[in-house]
């Protein structure tokens, strides 16, 4: 039973079936087998958050997830954000507010922030910090990332009446 077994997943909305060995990590499945290289390998031990994906909507460390245990799950990677090549409001805000520098942590931040705003459309600065506190960024000091998330919240809201 160390042998491979079929795994059924929906990745970015596309159902797929793969034969996967028990010790296959979800991160490796995404990057190596499915060529979804937007999910990054930063520490590979669950600290840095670069490998964050949404697993049934929940931001999850793909480096600490056995692929086989994602059976039946819906996985969203950075490649799955936005539709028809359009950026989401959050992605646009990251671009416009200078929230990416080297970009290596960016996919993880975007997925964590996407889930945050879905559950909580108007978080406070402190709530954003908490929600993103599993993602390390070494370039920005987080400032522009937090600003971008706040800006995306504003664009998602009706304009304030004068």
């Amino acid at each position: 039973m160390t042998a491979s077994a079929p795994l059924h997943l929906k990745v970015n909305g596309v159902p797929l079936e793969r034969s996967v060995p028990p010790n296959r990590i979800l991160l490796d499945l995404l990057r190596e087998d499915l060529n979804l290289t937007g999910t990054k390998r930063g520490c590979d031990l669950g600290t840095c958050g670069c490998c964050t994906v949404l697993l049934d909507g929940v931001p999850t460390l793909s480096c600490l997830t056995l692929a086989r245990l994602a059976e039946g799950a819906e996985v969203t990677t950075i490649e799955g954000l936005g539709e028809h090549g359009e950026l989401t409001a959050l992605q646009r805000a990251f671009v416009e507010h200078g929230a990416t520098q080297c970009g290596f942590c960016t996919p993880g931040f975007l997925l964590a922030a996407t889930a945050l705003l879905r559950d909580h459309p108007t978080p406070s600065r402190q709530e954003i910090q908490e929600a993103l506190s599993g993602n390390l960024c070494r370039c920005t000091g987080y400032v522009k990332i937090l600003e971008a998330v706040e800006a995306a919240c504003r664009t998602g809201l009706p304009a304030p009446s004068p």
Binding site: G46, L61, A131
Partner: peptide
């Protein structure tokens, strides 16, 4: 505990 990502699992 740890981080929100660790707590998710």
């Amino acid at each position: 505990v740890a981080t929100p990502l660790v707590r998710a699992s």
